[in-house]
Design a protein around this nucleic acid. Structure first.
Lengths: 241, 241
DNA sequence: CTCTATTTGTCCGTATGTATT
DNA sequence: TAATACATACGGACAAATAGA
């Protein structure tokens, strides 16, 4: 069922994480890996391409594939990763409180904010994320009810993405994101009571999320405490094409 | 010299940008594109993979490749894109002033900052970026002199990446980046005199940059005016592998 | 709902080019 | 120069998803 190259990707990744292939060492050549797995070199190359993209190895023409230090904990703003997934991966002491759950209709007054066509029925949800007991993120979501018809406050208090993908079987594909530093509002201070008075901005990540068939279904605004905000990323030099 | 699949990528991309293939329409099937270019389907698939990664199309199993709205101007923090390149792509009215150019040796007092081994000879450069006449970014760079032996203040006032790649023929491959919101210092205010007094933080992007052979050669700290900071990104949902 | 045509996804094998050592 | 390793390209086969009759 799962593709052969995915299995090979996973096994090589495990070998890297468990230091069977330590940092700075080279993986076996593509031909040797193909022998080990009794598959074609093409299949191995697909696996190595993913490892390269994910920052586990650096491929080098004529030399081999070198294992990179995977020191950085990935806190991806890029990549579409839910808070719940981050919590699990990073083992955070985190809790979610749903502070608003309502259904609204998109109208001219909020169109600029949500970018949904006027008249679209939406869920409007606000959640506060507490990390180590401190209110650290305010998430405001809008979901198209045509796509997500059975949202509840209970679902919102857990993992919405887990629900969307595993229960509703939606295939979440891509998002346009923008990151800015926005002025603190009185509403922000209400949900983040411990924010120091001299802090005048929150880090805002705004996302428009689409399904695999390009349907636009979610708009999210995440506002982060500036003194707690950090994200780490592995990035490759853009080829100039 | 340039690979066939790159040519195909470029031509399709041009067709999308010039709206020969408008948003929401479908590209011809892989087989048809292969016919048009008299190449194999494998070669077409490589081109489409890049277009998909770059957010120009959405591939859909059994359906085709749909053209996406490419509304967002990419201001990549991810992706390793130099200020000079951004300036050219976005047509910014931007100027660079080199405010510090010195050679130093890495020692215990700055090791935590640069992460270069103690005793490494380094160029230390600080540049202020003015956009529309306003000091908007402070860039602080450290370069390993073993890798970049002939840096000058004149080069630093232009495009260092252009120099590194085209003159020194270095192949810049990847970076570990972190983004945080750091407290404003008196030095920051010196270089950004118009920063409002109530602003207490700058958005900081810190990068450790490596060459294709994994050599670590550059450490950069970019501090952005919070009221001017914005970056947009196209991002895909991480497969859970 | 079934069948079929179309389209993309995966995998294989082979050949040749190019970079590194 | 020669051996090794990755990059590109071709062609074929079958699986899986989609759409429409």
């Amino acid at each position: 069922m799962t593709a052969r190259y995915i299995e090979i990707y996973q096994q090589l990744k495990t070998g890297i994480v468990e230091e069977k292939y330590p940092a700075d060492s080279f993986l076996p050549s593509e031909a040797k890996i193909a022998d080990q797995f009794s598959c074609s070199r093409d299949t191995v190359r697909k696996a190595l391409l993913r490892l390269d993209e994910d920052g586990f190895i650096q491929k080098q023409h004529g030399r081999g594939s070198q294992v990179l230090k995977h020191s950085l904990i990935n806190f991806p703003i890029s990549g579409l990763t839910s808070f719940q997934e981050l919590k699990e991966v990073q083992g955070l002491d985190a809790a979610t409180k749903v502070v608003l759950f309502e259904t609204i209709k998109s109208d001219p007054s909020n169109y600029h904010k949500t970018a949904f066509p006027i008249g679209t029925n939406l869920y409007h949800i606000i959640r506060v994320r507490n990390i180590d007991g401190l209110a650290s993120v305010i998430d405001e979501d809008y979901f198209d009810q045509k796509i997500v018809p059975h949202m509840t406050a209970k679902i919102a208090s857990g993992s919405i993405y887990d629900y969307l993908e595993n229960t509703e079987k939606l295939i979440i594909a891509y998002a346009e994101k923008s990151v800015t530093a926005e002025l603190v509002t009185s509403t922000d201070r209400k949900w983040m009571p411990n924010l120091a008075v001299q802090e005048n901005r929150l880090i805002q990540v705004e996302s428009r999320v689409h399904l695999a068939d390009t349907t636009y279904f979610q708009h999210t605004i995440s506002r982060h405490r500036p003194d707690k905000f950090q994200f780490n990323e592995f990035s490759r030099r853009q080829k100039t094409f």
